[in-house]
Simulated assay, not measured.
Amino acid sequence: MGDFLVLFAPVLRQIARYLPHHRSENASKTHPKSSHDKFKTASKFLKTGEIDKNATAKGLPEARERLRIDTLPDVEKRAYYRDMEALRYQRSVIKTGWDEGHTEGFKEGRAEGEKKKAKEVAKRMKEMGLSIKDIVQCTQLTHEEIEKL
């Protein structure tokens, strides 16, 4: 048993960090379980490979899921990782499409705004009596677009 503790002391310390805390009447609100309780819980984990369902420490849901995956048969584990990779790829494709669509929409909106502003300027220039040739040169609108204003 002594060799076991020496070999697994670092592992047990890591596990103990994630064990739930309890409150005793004589202790502060964050007083951790005694070392003995932590050791019992950690040794139970090492013996059974299970995390107490009542434990609520940070990171335990992820640890439980990881343990669940690690206990799957090899065929199921490979299928799980294939499915996760497929989901990751789908999310990536969707995100890329959204980003490209957003960028394209932004560019289109900006171009429409510039065109609208050019038409407003052309309309004012036309009202001032400037020639259509000068307006075309300044606004880069077509002759037909200026005539419609």
Rank of each mutant, 00 (worst) to 15 (best):
S43K: 12
P10F: 10
D3T: 09
H22I: 10
H143T: 14
I15V: 15
T139R: 02
E144T: 12
L72V: 02
K38W: 02
K116Y: 10
Y89R: 13
R110D: 10
K58S: 06
E147A: 11
G2N: 12
F8H: 14
V136E: 15
V93G: 01
P10L: 11
R17K: 13
L19S: 11
E62G: 04
K77Q: 13
P10I: 10
R88N: 04
S35I: 09
G2R: 12
L46H: 02
T41D: 14
G113W: 09
D74V: 09
I15Q: 03
K107C: 01
E108R: 14
R23H: 13
H143P: 01
V93M: 10
P10M: 09
D74R: 04
K29H: 08
L87C: 01
S43T: 14
A57Q: 07
K33S: 08
G59M: 00
I94T: 08
A122S: 06
L12M: 15
R88S: 05
K117T: 13
P32S: 10
N54L: 11
D99E: 15
T30S: 12
S92G: 08
E50I: 05
D52K: 04
A42M: 03
C138A: 15
P20L: 03
D99Q: 14
A63I: 03
Y80H: 11
S24E: 13
Y81P: 00
Y81K: 08
L72N: 02
E85G: 00
G105Q: 07
A63G: 01
A27Q: 11
D74W: 00
Q90A: 12
E25K: 09
M1W: 11
A55H: 11
S28H: 08
M84H: 05
Y81Q: 06
G113Y: 10
I146R: 08
F8P: 05
K33W: 04
N54R: 15
E85C: 00
R13I: 08
T48Y: 07
H31V: 01
A63Q: 02
L5K: 11
G49V: 06
A42D: 02
K77F: 01
E147W: 00
L149H: 03
E114K: 15
T56G: 03
R124H: 06
D37T: 02
E114C: 01
L7F: 12
I69C: 01
K133R: 13
K133Q: 12
P10D: 09
A122Q: 05
K53W: 01
F45N: 05
T142N: 06
I135Y: 04
R88I: 02
E50A: 10
P32Y: 04
K117G: 01
G2P: 02
K148P: 00
L5P: 01
R68A: 14
L149P: 03
R66I: 06
L12D: 01
D74G: 02
A16H: 05
G101M: 03
G109R: 06
H143M: 09
T96P: 00
A122K: 07
S24H: 07
L67D: 03
T142W: 01
E147L: 13
K119M: 15
G109T: 05
M125W: 12
E147Y: 02
I51V: 14
F45Y: 13
Y89G: 00
T56P: 00
G2L: 14
T139N: 03
F4L: 12
I132S: 09
M1I: 10
L141G: 06
S28Q: 08
